[in-house]
Design a protein around this nucleic acid. Structure first.
Lengths: 682, 682
DNA sequence: TTGTCTCCCGCAGGGAGACAA
DNA sequence: TTGTCTCCCTGCGGGAGACAA
């Protein structure tokens, strides 16, 4: 059975159509995945809409919908942008594995002319933002815990974090000798799960015992997957899961051979466009690729206010460890995405420099900058970006999830969220230089949710925090720094790197390098770089990387490596053989940062390799390679080898991607309150 | 993983093309099922051919490929007959449930003209039959056991019939105190299964114990499913399963809505025909419908020598109980299949009378005749026919399986078999009247395998007999009666009724009714007819019909029925209220026969209802209704009600069939040695 | 505070003889 | 000869405290 939240969505649409006062150019982003034609996902589409269209479900759905990585565009025969009207949006969940996906029904529209666009935009800009004034949103409580080995073991149940249990679960009478109760929670399919909840163990803790293992095995949960509990206003408990990056289980794997996949999948779209009939687009957040649907308003804004060289941006991100870091950047170059594949595409490939600041480290401030191309991006006025940390590989997923409520009633605006995968590709800032920031704020309330907020919600989803949606959304933009304020509304920067790049630029307003890569090799301590992950010439597979002992094991292994194989170690151009001091615990943070930063140096510093880097990232994600295994691919070779390695990986990725997804199309989706049109980049 | 026996098939094709001496108009029949377009079965086609193309595999595949019921044609926009060349045949097995299916790659050919056809046929008729002279076939030993409740229970293993174990399993040292050995068998996917085989229990018997339950649960076997063991010349043991009629498990269920299923599925065929490019046809024996592929030679023969009114035929069949019966029949009328749906179809609807003889019964001879229409049938010169007994409903499947080897090297002719489903529809005999029977024998060696032989093989597949393929195939046509001899070569008659018709006509050369239905009600003892299964107005579902106590339970239930509800009992036009004597055990055999014979009387006797009867049968099969429940549908109504019941059932069937299969096409497949062409009836 | 380990104990289920059809 | 039942015994795994990070 699948959840069909159409009903609620229809409500939204009605609101949007008839009562646009509250609706801005909301950031409704949809990414394509799977077959994007009218063929429905074959193994899972029962087509029977579930009767559970409550707000709580919407929230749970969104909470489960954390986008993963992305992929580059593919060129097809369709026109670059296709403007569409959103006819229907179904929030669904695969019955096989509970993964959420969206089916968007689109109706192609006549292309809108330039002047028309401007009119529409100016309409938007005058609208007052009254979202904060109407906090009709209930305050559900949610927590997300990444499952440990103990949680998924056959012995014992699920250990609930104390705050999470107290916040989301019904009150428990602690005066009893063995406090226990029955917990009832519904999953996305409306299936009711009953667990025995106890407060036991020594010391005492909250546990789900009886029937937990049934749930875990039925949902095929493994350590690293995450479980979400969400308590609505009415006290009703919802239950969702979000899987760690792993092979898709039960998702439609349309293996389509190259010779017939393109026409078969795209022809329905082509046909729909030519006949002005509806077609469907599927979006699986967990397997999303670069293709997406762009809000029409954003498209308009980007066309009117293109990003220009010199535009600066700022971002914050979370690391494995607490110290706050910030990152400033400047757009250094703007180029066509791919003039051959996408001759008329509005997407731009933006080269940028970012500046790194590492606080609270060892000797003080260490900085570096690198010039990294980030492709994609209709010239958005508001951009979210986040960074994936290595936690992804250890079962904790770093997400740039923006609250779906964000100051506006989520019942009326259930689609008001941005997918991470979109942020991947979008890097542009035209907000800077604009004098009236509030205009942009008013034009798109979604963008008010800065990265800090998104980051906080992320922590909630990771079980690090418990929050109510209300409190989260109302704290928006208070945590933003100066740069974030400056670019507020449209430039909250959210760069989502694929895990393997491990490029964790740190913000520093003081130190900048505006030009090309200025890579200071003197900052690298070779021995440090070797630490932990840089084992070379070691082809023994490292298992159990997800297990808690992972780092320790690696370190031991690395010690061996240093003793044995240091001679041949090379990190691109940098020989690691000269000196290899034992890393001390104090500089390990910096070590990790630098290691991440420089691992892809040879790639990121070369603008021409931009695409390949991205593809390479995707390969890694797709192939579920572990971090150090990925690095094995890219180190131990000269720069020339790196190039060929990337090309090989890219080819591999393309092949796999084709096989898995059938094809890719990128859609620019508009979901404005009066012009529900899409720009489809096919 | 799927088994791809292409390699062996390719060999065949090569032989066929380059060395046609041994090749006649072989009866390679393929039925369509699932989506018959170029879209491959979505959930299961891994596409990776398995490396196990041995003869043993071919035999196992065929042994597992017992066709079930059929369905009527559907009208589509394609031309009536499409002649195709067989480019490839892949014998595959769904990895989900081990069910076998075939993918036939067809290349449309220019339609062949009339004179051309005759030439080709005369070519065939002159070819000498040398199949018997070259017995290069190895002699594998095979047995098939329908699983009992004990076999599939969680306690204990699999009880192997003694003869089966001695014939197919390696020798066991009975002198040991606890004779045991490890048995290794490969399934259709090449997966190796290891069982502990013991000779234990008290009294001693052959058992598979350790790991049997793993196999059973992994294959999701239930009581009623059948397991096949096949030992090749090399001693290698193969293992296959054939499921009882039940909902398909894991088979591609392409739910295609009516508005787009037809064009989507058929357009590739249409396109392939117009562009003379290849397309694929899938055939799942277990879910086969009426659509099929006809050997070109048969097509030619049928067109040249059409069946004419008065043609007589004979058949033998097996009953639940030993007594041999025979059935003679005469074609009484020939008509178009459906001039509206199939304006130019070569298929003919043949009305016929059959004559029944019941031997060894009570007082001697009891006879009856009925005139039943059997639709379908390009005017084949050789026809196989069998009868489904009620055993099907009790987990024992009655099959009219013709040995694939049949006097010709199976390595070179692995496709030399006829599917039951084809036999369903084909009813015609033009062999009669021909003076030179040997011509037909020579022309098509496959047809030499008479029904008796097929029947014996059937018993093997049901575990009632153990045989070597060699011995089975070389006994062909010795057991045939006079009629079978007369029509030998091309008229081995094989009528496969769907279970619910339960029409078991018995052969009698002495008593015939050449005209329309002459139904002698005086032969019916109403009380007898009520016996056992004729419970009326009883809507309590009868469960566990497959269990051994079934008949006893039914009888008890029937006793109740007779006491309570006899007043309203009506068997079509025959009131059952007059008298209802308690059936004695002596006439129960006849009772059962008559009960079967007359259950569909109101339908079969009306030529206009011919199609509906067939559809009705299909409904029954499709809906997995039990025998008596089916009868509930058809009795207790007047003849008018019967009509509407049938129509309702037909509509239901059509709907279900559409949903399950997407569409249906019928193919006439030719696989002659020089003209590898198909006639496709779309 | 919470992840893992270990120990206890209940029960599912395999294995094989008993019994009967 | 073989299907079913029953009894025995093993091992999986749930449940909860012990212990430690």
């Amino acid at each position: 059975m699948e959840i069909d939240l159409n009903h609620a969505v229809d409500e939204v649409e009605k609101t949007v159509l008839c009562n646009g006062g509250c609706e801005k150019a909301s950031a409704y982003i949809y990414c394509l995945s799977s077959s994007s034609s009218s063929t429905s996902p074959c193994s899972s589409s029962s087509g029977s809409p579930a009767p559970c269209s409550s707000t709580t479900y919407l929230e749970l759905w969104h909470a489960c919908a954390v986008a993963s990585t992305f992929s580059p565009f593919k060129a097809f025969d369709l026109i670059p942008q296709i403007f569409c009207k959103v006819m229907n949006v179904q929030l669904l969940a695969y019955k096989e594995n509970d993964e959420v996906y969206t089916q968007v029904t689109l109706l192609p529209q006549r292309e809108l002319g330039g002047p028309n666009l401007e009119d529409k935009q100016s309409d938007k800009l005058g609208v007052e933002d009254d979202a904060d004034g109407q906090p009709s949103k209930p305050t559900p409580h949610v927590f997300c815990k990444t499952l440990t080995a103990s949680d998924t073991s056959t012995h014992g149940g699920f250990s609930v974090p104390r705050r999470a249990a107290e916040d989301c679960f019904p009150r428990l009478d602690y005066k009893q000798t063995r406090p226990s109760q029955e917990l009832v929670a519904k999953d996305l399919h409306g299936v009711e799960w009953r667990f025995r909840r106890i407060y036991g163990g020594q010391p005492r803790r909250h546990l789900l015992t009886t029937r937990w293992s049934i749930f875990a095995s039925q949902k095929n949960l493994i350590a690293g997957d995450a479980v979400l509990f969400l308590r609505g206003e009415d006290g009703e408990l919802r239950l969702g899961i979000r899987r760690a990056v792993q092979p898709r289980n039960g998702l439609p794997d349309l293996v389509i051979s190259e010779q017939n996949s393109y026409p078969n999948v795209l022809s329905p779209v082509t046909n729909a466009v030519s006949t002005k009939t509806m077609f469907h687009v599927f979006y699986s957040p967990r397997v999303s690729h670069a293709e997406f649907v762009i809000p029409f308003q954003k498209y308009v804004k980007s066309v009117i206010n293109p990003v220009c060289t010199g535009t600066r941006f700022k971002m914050r991100f979370e690391m494995d460890d607490p110290p706050e870091r910030r990152c400033n950047g400047v757009v250094t170059e703007i180029r066509d995405l791919d003039p051959y594949k996408w001759p008329n595409s509005k997407w731009r490939c933006l080269m940028h420099s970012i500046f790194i600041e590492v606080k609270k480290l060892q000797t003080g401030l260490q900085t570096a900058a690198l010039n990294s191309p980030i492709t994609g991006g209709v010239e958005f006025l508001d951009i979210e970006e986040s960074v994936r940390s290595s936690k992804v590989l250890q079962g904790l997923e770093n997400v740039g999830f923006v609250s779906p409520v964000n100051g506006c009633n989520s019942v009326n605006r259930p689609l008001n969220f941005e997918m991470q995968s979109m942020a991947h590709q979008s890097l542009a800032s035209t907000g800077i230089g604009k004098s009236n920031h509030s205009e942009f704020r008013k034009a798109d309330p979604t963008s008010y949710t800065g990265f800090a907020e998104s980051n906080r919600f992320l922590k909630v989803l990771q079980g690090q925090e418990i929050c109510s949606w209300r409190s989260l959304t109302h704290k928006a933009d208070r945590n933003l720094g100066v740069w974030a304020k400056t670019n507020l509304g449209n430039t909250s920067f959210n760069m989502n790197q694929a895990p393997n790049t491990n490029c964790y630029p740190l913000a520093s307003e003081g130190l900048r390098n505006m030009g090309n890569v200025s890579f200071d090799a003197s900052l690298i301590k070779p021995g440090v770089i070797v630490d932990g992950l840089w084992k070379l010439n070691d082809h023994k597979p490292i298992h159990n990387i997800n297990r808690p002992g992972f780092k320790r094991n690696l370190r031991n292994q690395q010690d061996d490596c240093c003793k044995e194989n240091v001679t041949g170690c090379k990190l691109f151009r940098f020989s690691l053989t000269a000196e290899s001091p034992t890393p001390n615990s104090q500089n390990s943070d910096l070590t990790t940062e630098l290691e991440r930063l420089f691992s892809m140096e040879g790639l990121l510093s070369d603008p021409d390799k931009g695409w390949r880097v991205l593809e390479f990232c995707e390969v890694v994600s797709k192939m579920h390679l572990y971090r150090q295994e990925v690095k094995k691919m890219s180190i131990g070779m000269g720069s020339d080898d790196t190039q060929s390695c990337l090309e090989e990986a890219a080819v591999k990725w393309k092949h796999q991607s084709l096989a898995q997804l059938g094809c890719q199309i990128a859609l620019h989706l508009s979901y404005g309150y009066e012009d529900q049109c899409f720009a489809i980049e096919s």
